[in-house]
Amino acid sequence: MGDTTTPTWAPALDRPGLLAEPVAAALRALTPEDAAQVLVAEVDPGVADTAVLVEATDVAREECATCVLVAGRRDGEQRVAAATVRGSDRADVNGLVKRALDVRKASFFPREEAVAASAMEFGAITPLGLPAGWRVLVDGAVAALPRAVVGSGVRRSKLALPGAVLLRLPGAELAEGLGRPSA
């Protein structure tokens, strides 16, 4: 491993320029106690992906979490869920997410649609600040993290917060077994 750096964490609400606008709005809507626990650190956009972030910084793989957008249709209605799992896992899209959405087929959002619908940058989509009505499925392993490192809505920064705070977001629900070990 090469030299690693330590991200400089600061209260996220003190650094709104490092947040996508829907993420900043979601943080302002949290209780003051929860908002105070959310930190942000500027990172090189080239290290925003989990594997590169872990290699380039002192952020541990075990504390990283990823958020993927999944959708399916039922009776002509699009149903959307954000699946949040550890960075070392993959979301059980064809099992748990499909059942949660109550659809026959669940698929990842195409890149352009994910960016447009979330108002966040691809590769930085986070469970904070997603559109109302979207389900936010949080794997139990993520919810149990004392510090979960997630996207900030922009690739130039990361958020760190207790995993339990994710369960207090609008639309959030605990989804035990959502994360499956990657092959």
Results as ranks from 00 to 15, higher is better:
1 M>K: 07
3 D>V: 12
4 T>E: 09
8 T>G: 07
8 T>E: 15
13 L>A: 07
20 A>T: 12
25 A>P: 01
27 L>D: 03
28 R>P: 03
28 R>W: 08
35 A>S: 14
36 A>C: 10
37 Q>V: 01
39 L>T: 12
40 V>C: 13
42 E>T: 07
42 E>M: 01
44 D>R: 10
45 P>S: 12
51 A>V: 03
54 V>M: 07
56 A>T: 02
57 T>Y: 08
60 A>Y: 00
68 V>F: 12
68 V>I: 15
70 V>E: 01
71 A>S: 10
75 D>Y: 07
83 A>F: 05
85 V>L: 07
94 N>R: 05
95 G>N: 12
106 A>F: 04
107 S>W: 09
108 F>G: 00
111 R>A: 06
113 E>S: 03
114 A>F: 01
115 V>K: 13
119 A>Y: 00
119 A>R: 14
121 E>L: 11
122 F>G: 12
123 G>A: 11
123 G>N: 09
123 G>P: 06
124 A>C: 01
126 T>Q: 04
127 P>C: 09
133 G>E: 02
140 G>D: 15
142 V>H: 04
149 V>E: 02
154 V>P: 04
156 R>H: 14
156 R>S: 15
157 S>I: 02
158 K>Y: 02
168 R>C: 12
170 P>K: 09
174 L>R: 12
177 G>K: 07
178 L>V: 11
178 L>A: 11
